[in-house]
Amino acid sequence: MVLNRMRNIAFLSTYPPRECGIATFTQDLVRELDKIKLLQKPKIIALSNDDYKYDNDSVKMEINQCTREDYIKAAKAINNSSIELLVIEHEYGIFGGECGEYLLDFVDNLNIPFVTTLHTVLPKPSFKQREILNIIGKKSKKIITMSKNTVYVLENIYDIDKNKIEVINHGVPFRIMPARENLKDKYGLKDKNIISTFGLIGPSKGLEYGIEAVAEVVKKHKDIVYLILGQTHPCIKREKGEEYRERLEELVENLGIKDNVCFINKYLTKDEIINYLQISDIYMTPYLGKDQAVSGTLAYAAGYGRVIVSTPYSYAKEMLSEGRGMLGEFKNAYSLAKCINYILENPDKKRDMEHKTLKVGKTMMWESVAKQYAKLFITVIEDHKKEGSLVV
């Protein structure tokens, strides 16, 4: 492997200011990769939906996600550039066409090697979803997934070669934080037990069950404050306005727990997210989808050693194994409340869970994760060059 040359890579992804978890993920990874001297500053080919303007120097090209011709033009432009490797951040919904099928036009016209990071792995895909990921898997040099539980699915459902699959954890930004109680005091929450949930809000998050669980816990623990952090998902807001949030607020009112639930209705910065996590005694994800393979919000909570209470979706079961948190039942507020009460009433067990979670969380900081990505990217580039040199 050649180590004294800077490689030239690019990402196909959403990117800030687009308010999207994949955009934030890519920005965090690119910023960390930029510190690694074996790579040139990574470039971005950004997927756009005309709702915002890209003014970031890293964005070198845009694809209108609903314009099929843009994908072919972009692939040909990349072929004629100095880019040596493309990284595709894949989620069906960010690409145009049925289940994001326009991406296939892109890879069909791409002549340089590419790797694909999967943000969604469905164990029961539709025919179209399976077809797309199967083709991407065959053409990618590597498939990156963020959880071990998806490897079997990728092999057996999508027929992807196991030797192509790499597992790299979702990254978490590192900050040196003040003590939890000091930060609580700063937020006016001294002597409160804080539960939090953050991320873009929509019906799939199951927040009504989280609220009902808190109403049950309040019967025994009056000092609970549940922070619901984040704005409504832009796509949901565009289609249905604030209908879901308003239903949640009405539920809080009807349950008589206005003093115990606080909505922070904004798109949070990373520093805000980390501050709120630091003051949290429990992080809760009452999500409804049992097949969710990755959760960036749960990864952040694990990274900062929070005790996590969750429904047993795929990623939560993996991350909370070995005593790193507690799993309730889907659509069961009483089950979630039972978990919360146990944690509040057993401080020694809570500390043990925090310790176990933090041990794993330390391995998920972006510095460590980016080094794994960089090593993989360089290996793919060098292996591709060796393959080319063997062609007679």
Rank of each mutant, 00 (worst) to 15 (best):
K240M: 14
K240A: 15
G241D: 15
G241A: 15
E242K: 14
E242T: 14
E242A: 14
E243N: 13
E243V: 15
E243M: 15
Y244K: 07
Y244V: 13
Y244E: 09
R245D: 10
R245F: 09
R245C: 09
R245W: 06
E246W: 11
E246L: 15
R247W: 01
R247P: 01
R247E: 10
L248H: 03
E249W: 07
E249S: 07
E249R: 08
E249G: 02
E250N: 11
L251K: 12
V252I: 13
V252R: 07
L255T: 08
L255Q: 05
L255R: 13
L255M: 10
G256T: 07
G256R: 05
G256W: 06
G256H: 07
I257N: 14
I257R: 14
D259S: 13
D259C: 08
N260S: 12
V261Q: 08
F263T: 11
F263N: 10
F263E: 11
I264M: 11
I264H: 05
I264W: 06
K266H: 09
L268V: 04
L268Q: 05
K270V: 14
K270D: 13
D271C: 06
D271G: 07
E272L: 08
E272F: 06
I273W: 02
I273Y: 02
N275C: 05
L277F: 03
I279Q: 03
I279G: 04
S280I: 02
I282L: 03
I282W: 06
I282Y: 05
I282G: 01
Y283A: 10
Y283E: 04
Y283L: 01
M284I: 15
M284N: 04
T285R: 05
Y287S: 05
G289Q: 12
K290V: 02
K290S: 10
K290D: 12
D291H: 11
D291F: 13
D291A: 15
D291M: 11
Q292S: 10
A293R: 12
V294A: 11
S295N: 09
S295T: 09
G296H: 03
G296F: 08
L298H: 05
Y300V: 12
A301Y: 07
A302V: 15
G303P: 03
Y304G: 05
Y304A: 01
G305P: 09
G305A: 03
G305H: 10
V307G: 01
V307E: 07
I308G: 07
V309D: 09
S310E: 06
S310V: 09
T311L: 13
P312A: 08
P312C: 05
Y313F: 15
Y313L: 06
S314Q: 08
Y315H: 00
Y315N: 00
Y315E: 00
K317Q: 09
K317D: 01
E318P: 07
M319L: 15
L320A: 06
L320Q: 04
L320C: 11
L320Y: 05
E322V: 07
E322D: 11
E322M: 13
G323D: 11
R324F: 13
R324E: 04
G325F: 12
G325E: 08
M326W: 04
M326G: 01
L327H: 00
L327M: 06
E329L: 12
E329P: 08
F330Y: 09
K331S: 13
N332K: 00
N332V: 09
A333M: 08
A333E: 10
A333P: 04
Y334H: 01
Y334G: 00
L336S: 00
A337W: 01
A337D: 03
A337P: 00
K338Y: 05
K338C: 00
C339E: 12
C339D: 08
I340D: 07
N341I: 02
N341C: 01
